[in-house]
Computed example of a mutant assay.
Amino acid sequence: MARILLVDDAGYMRRLIGIMATKGGHEVVGEAETGQTAVELYEKVRPDLVILDILMPDMNGLEALKKIREIDPDARVLMCTASEQSSHVQEALSLGARGYIVKPFTKEIILSTIENALNA
């Protein structure tokens, strides 16, 4: 079981991923709708995994990923993206993301991607 921080500016996406992760035995320990809030929450809750949307207001997911990895170089982060954002995915992977989830997704994809990130 992993303690997960969910970051997406769309509340329904946080709820959807949270429900899927919880059904897979994981615990959602925080939610954020901006990158800045994600960085602040990461420092407070130190989750096992962050699922981080790329496109958000305030601070995008790539900037948040950089700041989280500055706080904790071993942070496990999965990026969540729409399929047309493939160049952002490559940049995220080069910045240390452990993988990515492409919207739309299934519960099986979410859970297998979480497991891969935790075991990488």
Score class of each variant (00 low, 15 high):
residue 1 M to T: 14
residue 2 A to R: 06
residue 5 L to M: 09
residue 5 L to R: 07
residue 5 L to I: 13
residue 6 L to W: 09
residue 6 L to F: 09
residue 7 V to A: 04
residue 8 D to Q: 02
residue 9 D to Q: 05
residue 9 D to M: 08
residue 9 D to V: 11
residue 10 A to L: 03
residue 10 A to G: 00
residue 11 G to W: 02
residue 12 Y to L: 14
residue 13 M to F: 07
residue 14 R to D: 00
residue 14 R to C: 07
residue 15 R to L: 11
residue 15 R to N: 03
residue 17 I to W: 02
residue 18 G to L: 04
residue 18 G to Y: 02
residue 19 I to V: 13
residue 22 T to F: 00
residue 22 T to S: 12
residue 23 K to P: 00
residue 24 G to E: 02
residue 26 H to D: 03
residue 27 E to Q: 15
residue 27 E to L: 13
residue 28 V to C: 01
residue 29 V to K: 01
residue 30 G to Y: 05
residue 31 E to S: 02
residue 31 E to G: 01
residue 33 E to S: 13
residue 34 T to G: 09
residue 36 Q to P: 00
residue 37 T to V: 13
residue 38 A to L: 02
residue 40 E to P: 05
residue 43 E to S: 14
residue 44 K to R: 14
residue 48 D to C: 07
residue 49 L to A: 01
residue 50 V to L: 03
residue 52 L to R: 08
residue 52 L to Q: 07
residue 52 L to E: 01
residue 53 D to P: 10
residue 53 D to L: 04
residue 54 I to C: 05
residue 54 I to M: 06
residue 55 L to V: 15
residue 55 L to F: 11
residue 57 P to T: 15
residue 59 M to N: 09
residue 60 N to Y: 04
residue 60 N to T: 14
residue 62 L to M: 11
residue 63 E to Q: 14
residue 63 E to G: 13
residue 63 E to P: 02
residue 63 E to F: 02
residue 65 L to C: 04
residue 65 L to F: 07
residue 66 K to V: 13
residue 66 K to T: 14
residue 67 K to Q: 15
residue 67 K to C: 09
residue 68 I to L: 01
residue 70 E to V: 15
residue 72 D to F: 08
residue 72 D to G: 08
residue 74 D to H: 02
residue 74 D to W: 01
residue 74 D to L: 12
residue 75 A to C: 07
residue 75 A to L: 07
residue 76 R to L: 11
residue 78 L to V: 10
residue 79 M to S: 04
residue 80 C to K: 08
residue 80 C to G: 05
residue 82 A to R: 08
residue 82 A to P: 03
residue 82 A to K: 10
residue 83 S to M: 12
residue 85 Q to L: 11
residue 86 S to A: 14
residue 87 S to F: 11
residue 88 H to G: 12
residue 89 V to L: 12
residue 91 E to S: 11
residue 92 A to Q: 09
residue 93 L to M: 13
residue 95 L to V: 08
residue 96 G to H: 10
residue 98 R to M: 10
residue 99 G to T: 11
residue 100 Y to T: 02
residue 100 Y to L: 08
residue 101 I to S: 06
residue 101 I to E: 03
residue 101 I to D: 04
residue 102 V to A: 11
residue 104 P to M: 09
residue 104 P to D: 06
residue 104 P to S: 08
residue 105 F to E: 09
residue 106 T to H: 08
residue 106 T to E: 07
residue 107 K to F: 00
residue 108 E to Q: 10
residue 109 I to M: 15
residue 109 I to N: 09
residue 109 I to D: 12
residue 110 I to A: 10
residue 112 S to F: 03
residue 112 S to V: 06
residue 112 S to R: 15
residue 114 I to A: 04
residue 114 I to N: 06
residue 115 E to G: 14
residue 117 A to R: 10
residue 117 A to S: 05
residue 118 L to M: 14
residue 120 A to H: 06
residue 120 A to P: 02
